[in-house]
Every structure is written in C-alpha cells, then in structure tokens.
Design a binder for these strands. Structure first.
Length: 829
RNA sequence: GGGCGGAUGGCGGAACUGGCAGACGCGCCGGACUUAGGAUCCGGUGGAGCGAUCCGUGAGGGUUCGAGUCCCUCUCCGCCCACCA
C-alpha cells in the first residue's frame, strides 16, 4: 500500500472498474425494491459549474447509499439540450447550436465522470435528438386531440430582445427572465397548454407532497393563486352591464366608483360622447407604456372618468365609472369595484381624484375608524359590517358568503373562483426547439401531422439571426409540404416549443430511453415511478416543477402512468457562492470550477467539501481552507489504514467483550453506523454524517492494538468506515476497503456490498454522564449506570462537593430527574 | 406591501420530542519531530476573572425547576412574489 494519499492514481482506476463491472446499471436487482434518484438534468451551456457539482454530489451520495442498502436503483443522467442560450450563442458566432451543444455535452460528460458520479450512462440522451423530441410532438398531438393544447389569439409577452413570445411565468418585473430586455404586450396567435384546467388538481395535490420543502409548496400555492370571491354585475342603464370580480364582496356597500381596465371591451360603449376624446387619449397613453413601468411599484395611479354611471345592485346607488392604469385586463373580469375605505390602491386613487370614501367595516375590537373623509389610510382587515343594510352587524367572512348567495339568488352575480395561474403559452419563434407538428392548409386549415410522419425533424440548414421571421420560416424545404388531408401544397408551422416542454417529462424517458414505439414503457413506469428523490435548485420552484406536475397528470390521463404526482420527495439545494460570499460570477472574478478542483485535490475531496460545508438546502461559500482540511482528513484516513495493516487479518470471532478502550471503540463504530444511516434515512444532513466519521477516525487514531481482540475491533471499525465513507468519497473508500479485505475479495466491489448494520446493544452506553443542577444552574456532573433511577442518581449527586456547597443551609423543595440526562435540585431559603 | 426562511465563538456549522450551548471542521496559540516546515503528531482555544464564580445563542418581555428550542413585541439579513381586486 502506498504510504501517501494520491487521489489521481486511484480515482480513474476505480471509475474504470465500476464501469467495466456495470456497477451502476439499472435493473441489476430485479427482485429488490426499486428506488428512483434523480437530479435535475443540466443545460449544457459552457462548462460545468459548482452548482452542478453540488446537485449531483448530493444525489449521488443518496443513490450510492440506496444501492448498498440493497435497492434496485435507477440513477440516470441526460442533457437538456434545446434552448435559447445556445441559439443566442449561435447568433453571435455563426456556429450551429447543435455543434456547440454537442461539444459542451462531451465536456460535461467527462467532468461528471471525473467526479465519480454513479450514473447509469447507458440511459443517457439529449433532448435535441429527434428520438427524444419526436415524443414531445406525439404528446402535443394527444393533447391537441383532447383539447389540452389549443390555439389562442391573445395578448402575449413579446420579448424585445429575443423577438419571441415567452410565458407569463418567465416574465420577471416586466423583463425577460433570460435576456432582461423589456417585455411588451403584443397580440399574436400562439399555442397554449390548458394548464388552468388542472389548477384545482395541482393545488390539491400539494397537500399530498409531504416530503417537499414547505417553502416550495407555499410558492406553488401562491403561484396557482386560488382566490374565492364573487362576480357582481353593475348595470349601466340602457348601455351594458359591467361584471366586476372581488374577493371582498363584504365591502360592497362602501363602493363609491367602478374602474375598468383601459383595454376593457366596454370602454367605448359606456363612455359619454363629451368625454370620448379624453378617454381615448388616456387609453392610447397607457397602451404605449411598457408593462414594467405601468405595473411597477412606484408607478403613479392614473385614471380618467368616462362620464358613465353604473348601479350597485345591492344598494341601487349610481356610482361613476372610471378607467385606471393599474387595473389589468388579464386578471378577473378586467373591472373592479372600488372601495377606497378598505383597499389601499382604491384609497389613493380616490384621494387623488376627489372621490368619496365610505367606511363600511369596523375592526372587531379596538378603536373605531373615523369617517371616510378623515381616514388616513385604508383599513383592509376583516371586521364587522356597518352601513350595509341587512348585512350590518355580520362579520366579514359570513357576510361574504351571505352576500354572494344573495347575488346568485337574485341573478346579479355569483360566487366565483379565480386563479393567478394562466395557461402556458409555449410556442416560440425560435429555431433551437421542438418543431410543432401541424400544417396550415388553405383548404383544411390546421392539420395535425399524422403520427406516422413523426418526427418532424429540425432542419440543419436554418439561418439564425434572432430577428424578424422565425428561422424555420426561412427554410423552404421545411416550410413547403403537401397537406396530409387533401394533398395540396401547404405550409408547416414554423414555431417551436418552449424548452420547458423537454424537461416536463424527461424523467419518464429515462425508463426506456431507446424505445421507438412510444415515449416510454408504461410497465417500467409502474415499477419506477414516482421518482423517489428529486434534487435540484429552488429556482425551479414554480415554473419547471409546476409544468412537470402538470405533464404527469396529462400522462396519467393518457394511461401511461399510474399516479398523478411525479415525485415523492424534493430536495432543493442552496447556492455555492464564491469565497467572498457573493454569487459566483465573472463580474466578481470569484468563480471556482469543479474541473480544476478535481485536478488539484481529487474528486473525493471536492465531494466531501460540498457535503460537509452545510446541510444541502443552505447556501455555502467556497473556502480554500476548508477544502484543504478535507483533503487532510482523507490523507489522515489513508495513513490510518496504512498504519493498521497488521489488523487486517484478525477474525471477528476474537472481538473484545471486556471493558476498555477497544470495547469503547466498538461502541463508537456501531454508533457511527447508526448516525450515518439515520443521516440518509431522515434529514439528509450529510455534514453531521461526515462529522461522525471524523470522530470515529479521531478515536481510532491513537489506539495501539496489542491483542487479537484489539486488532479485531480495529478491523471492524476500518471495514465499517470504508463502507460509511463510500457514498461521500467513493474512490478512496473502495481502495481502502480492498486493502482491508485483502486479495480474497479482489472480484468484489465495495459499491455492491451491503450497507453495514449496527448492534443496538452496542449503541446504548452502559454508563452515562448526568448533569447536576441546583436551581437550573450547572453545579457538577456524575457518572451513573444508564439504568440508574432517581434515588441512586440523587445520592451520587449529593455526594459531590460542589453540589453540597450549593445545597448547604437550603431546603430542597423539589427534585427534577430526567433519566440519563440530568438531576435538578430546586432549593429555597 | 405580501409570503417564506434565517440570525449561535474569529469563520462554516452542531445541539432528538425544552434538559451539560458551541459536536465536527477551518483559523489561531503552545509543544514534539525536524537542516527546514506552509508536512505530520500531541495539547489548548466563547468572553471576563488569579480564583470560587459570573456573563453568554440578533434586542426586549413572558411561560418553566430549566429556553438556542415554546409564546408575545421589535430589529436586521436572504430568497420568492407583487398595483392579482
């Protein structure tokens, strides 16, 4: 055995051995229970970064552990290869996005292998392969048949930088999430998934996801955004009827005006002729304002009076109808009833334009509100109704119910549910995506491409400029087809799919990645789904994870899967920041990449650093010093095995039973097995699991075994240590395990060995240290048998000198005894 | 403004259902071995005090024999969302 720890001489060797043995192939244990461990697949733009290093290290530790626990594990990897960045890069340097993507994949694969990740590489695929995206097209056609896909003529977010439509969910503060260019509204025909039809179901499903972080569940709930309210019709006599949506129908007696969105269809109709010019100017002005500016936090509230009046159906009162820039056409009915006393926006608007403020809700307790004209700000809490006719005196909640019911009974409204979630517009005027499989025919209209003509392959020869028409429109051989129905010349759809489509079902494709008859094998799905553990960044909390849940429900409807949630447990990992605590970025010059670190320290050290720095969900800062420390730990472990070679041949029959350091060592060994095992089964706090291994090494280090029994105890510890280390630092663990086990085991691999078990009798200490307190303050400690009762411990404690000093001259009023932990004398006088 | 997390030594972080605060690592200090040490090994390391002891988990209150942990009020930090009616 080499005296020095040299990771570079051992890591590639074991990587090769594992690969040759097919150690990480799925399905090696067909009779064992299945487990599916999945990390979010990477988008291969450029080189692998530390964030990737973290996700895959966390998932890999789990996968390796579960394999050793005897499960049949699937741990696949692939590449999310289609997408805007590759296309933007292509626009920049003129290279084909596929060429660049394939290069990046080669680099990624090499780095992942150098990190020793236990992927089943035989299942790898990239979403840019027609063998994959043809099934995106297949799903599209199935959803089209079922009305889940539809064509809509609607306002869309138009990114002025990417020149393409992006989803609502991808707009951040009025800007494109990717390129940060301003997003403007534009009317455009587009394809959409009817995800809103699943809104209630997606919401209900969250209650069953008990192993998802609460944070993520809350974000999804907010994103789906169910609000229960009421729709109420405010007639404009002789003109029209304005439907307003409100969640606070209990405040309706305080409604002093009604506001329409500038784009509301009734604007023209209700506006009185003398105000038409002013209204039109306002509408024009608002339309020109960018979404970001209009809906930004500090944007001024502006409005204009239409001259019309609408009737509050509850009171019969006539209230003025206004337009305002802050009312959005796309939400609710695009019209709101304004209750300035109980809504802050309405309040500010009313003050600005001198509209009346009428208090109709009083706080249930505490001071009453002043009259509306003296109110300093809106009171938006629930309370007790006043000045609300027959509803006066009711609480807000029962009032909402009673009032919505009355609206329904009298036919001027109804209880209504509204969602924040919008349908998912997924067509992109881009090249590097899945072609949408439809044909536009002059005779037959929109004609789906027949299944037997799939895939519609992305042509290589597209000219990508990022401007004007979609790139595919400029490829005549692609565009010009004959109609599958009538055989006349027709045009292909030139738009492609959002890449979130690709990542919505890839986990299922891993189950039969080479299937050319169907997207995946439903029998395999029955065995492997849902995913047991899914590891990825919390930045995907809403978009990807919602689409992914939606798609799974669609696959359920298609009979391809048996359950409606795709994943049981979600682990969201924190960011790896630079050494300065800031986000790694070229701008700060604080980027640390996994590749160079593997070359410097070896994969095992890097993996250990990532796992030891903090629990998975916390952000961590890169630290060169900590990395050094972990390299030193592995070198120390290495030296330990080297120094104890004389223990390798002792047999377990000689294990020590008599009290002494080697029996203590055995206890430590078994306790460590227990702690690390629980670390995997419960909290996934790998940092404390690794700390436990360090403690074992520290205890082992100074021991000098003299007898066979001593050596057997050391050997037991060394065998266990190699196994326990294996999920975290697999290469060095494999090497050391072979050293201990010796030549007899040369054909076996540690990664295939069973996970060590612990003896429950050994993890329980027989002597415990009990803290002694007087009035809650620590005054000493005593050693006692673990089984000791109160009387025994009390006697031991009272014999302690320091304790006696604090008890002297006092009366013991009470004694609190916690077995195995403490005894507390409560004294007085 | 709303939602969700946080706040513990010089630093990263431990602490199961309230029960010895600071495990483990880094850094630092001392020692050993060395021509040398930025390698390795051993010891120390929350603060104050010579000491017995006292003070310490963002701040302030409370519950309790006992609070990092539970309750109330507040401050700061991070992330997500935001004229969503």
């Amino acid at each position: 055995m080499n005296e020095r720890y040299e990771p570079h001489s051992i890591e590639p060797r074991w990587q090769t051995r594992w690969e040759q043995a097919g150690a990480f192939k799925t399905g090696r244990r067909p009779d064992a229970e299945p487990r599916y461990v999945l990390e979010m697949f990477p988008y291969p733009s450029g080189a692998m970064h530390m964030g990737h290093g973290r996700v895959y290290t966390i998932g890999d530790a789990l996968a390796r552990y579960l394999r050793m626990r005897g499960f049949d594990v699937i741990h696949p990897i692939g590449f999310d290869a289609l997408g805007l960045p590759a296309e933007n890069a292509a626009i920049k340097d003129g290279r084909h996005p596929g060429e660049r993507t394939r290069e990046n994949i080669v680099a990624f694969r090499a780095e992942m292998k150098s990190l020793g990740y236990s992927f089943d590489w035989s299942r790898e695929f990239a979403t840019c392969e027609p063998e994959y995206y043809r099934w995106n097209q297949w799903f599209f056609l199935r959803m089209l048949e079922r009305g889940i896909v539809y064509r809509r003529e609607g306002k869309a977010n138009w990114c002025t930088g990417c020149n393409t439509v992006i989803a609502n969910e991808q707009v951040v503060d009025g800007r494109c999430e990717r390129c940060e260019s301003p997003v403007v509204e534009k009317v455009i025909p587009e394809w959409a998934f009817r995800i809103t039809a699943f809104a209630q179901d997606l919401l209900d499903g969250l209650d069953r996801l008990t192993a998802w972080p609460e944070r993520i569940l809350t974000m999804q709930r907010n994103w789906i955004g169910k609000s229960v309210g009421a729709e109420v019709a405010f007639p404009v006599p002789g003109q029209a009827s304005i439907d307003v949506f409100t969640t606070r129908v209990d405040t309706i007696f305080g409604c002093t005006y009604v506001v329409l969105a500038p784009e509301h269809p009734l604007v023209e109709k209700v506006t009185v002729p003398e105000r038409a010019a002013e209204v039109r100017a306002f509408v024009e002005r608002t339309r020109k304002t960018e979404a970001a500016e209009r809906t930004g936090e500090d944007a001024p509230k502006e409005g204009v009076f239409t001259g019309a009046h609408a009737v509050n159906p509850y009171t019969g009162e006539r209230v003025p109808v206004w337009l305002a820039n802050f009312v959005l056409a796309g939400y609710g009915t695009g019209a709101v009833m304004s209750v300035p006393a109980h809504d802050q926006r309405d309040f500010e608007f009313a003050r600005k334009y001198g509209l009346p403020v009428r208090v109709v809700i009083q706080p249930a307790k505490g001071e009453k509100l002043p009259p509306g004209d003296q109110l300093a700000k809106a009171y938006t809490e629930d309370g007790v109704l006043e000045g609300s006719g027959r509803f006066t005196g009711l609480g807000s909640a029962p009032a909402r119910e009673a009032m919505a019911d009355e609206a329904k009974a009298k036919g001027f409204g109804k209880p209504t549910v509204r969602w924040h979630l919008r349908d998912w517009g997924f067509s992109r005027q881009r090249y590097w995506g899945t072609p949408i499989p439809v044909i536009y025919c002059g005779t037959d209209g929109i004609v789906p491409v027949p299944d037997d003509q799939l895939p519609v392959v992305l042509p290589d020869e597209a000219i990508i400029t990022g401007k004007g028409e979609p790139p595919l429109a400029k490829v005549p051989s692609f565009v010009n087809v004959t109609c599958p129905k009538c055989g006349k010349p027709a045009r292909r759809e030139v738009e492609t799919m959002d890449t979130f489509v690709d990542s919505s079902w890839y986990y299922a494709r891993f189950l039969s990645p080479h299937d050319d008859k169907r997207p995946f094998d439903p029998e395999a799905a029955k065995r492997w789904l849902p995913v047991d553990v899914y590891v990825g960044g919390p930045e995907h909390a809403v978009m990807h994870l919602l689409y992914f849940r939606f798609w799974h429900r669609v696959m359920h409807q298609l009979g391809l899967v048996h359950e409606d949630e795709p994943c049981e447990r979600l682990v969201t990992q924190g960011i790896v920041n630079g050494p300065d605590g800031r986000k790694m970025s070229k701008r700060w010059g604080n980027v640390v990449q996994p590749g160079p670190m593997v070359r410097k320290y070896g994969a095992d050290t890097l993996r250990l650093f990532i796992l030891f720095a903090a629990p998975p969900e916390k952000d961590i800062d890169w630290s060169d010093d900590q990395v050094d420390g972990l390299f030193r730990f592995l070198a120390r472990v290495w030296r330990l095995y080297h120094a104890r070679q004389d223990c390798f041949r002792a047999g377990p029959e000689h294990l020590p039973g008599a009290p002494g350091p080697f029996l203590e060592l055995r206890r430590r060994t078994h306790r460590t097995v227990q702690r690390v095992t629980e670390g995997f089964d419960k909290e996934l706090k790998f940092n404390t699991s690794i700390a436990a291994l360090m403690e074992l090494v520290n205890e082992l280090y100074p021991l000098e075994p003299k007898t066979d029994a001593d050596r057997a105890a050391v050997r037991e510890a060394l065998v266990a240590l190699a196994s326990l280390l294996s999920p975290f630092a697999p290469h060095v663990a494999e090497e050391l395990w072979h050293e201990v086990i010796g030549p007899a085991a040369k054909d076996r691999l540690l990664v295939d060995e069973p996970w060590p078990t612990f003896d429950p009798a050994l993890v329980l200490a027989d002597t415990v240290t009990i803290a002694v307190q007087v009035n809650g303050k620590l005054r000493g400690e005593v050693q006692a048998p673990a089984s000791a009762g109160e009387a025994e411990v009390r006697a031991l404690a009272e014999a302690e000198e320091r304790v006696q000093a604090h008890l002297a001259g006092k009366t013991v009023r009470k004694v609190v005894f916690v077995p195995k932990r403490l005894v507390n004398f409560v004294v007085g006088g």
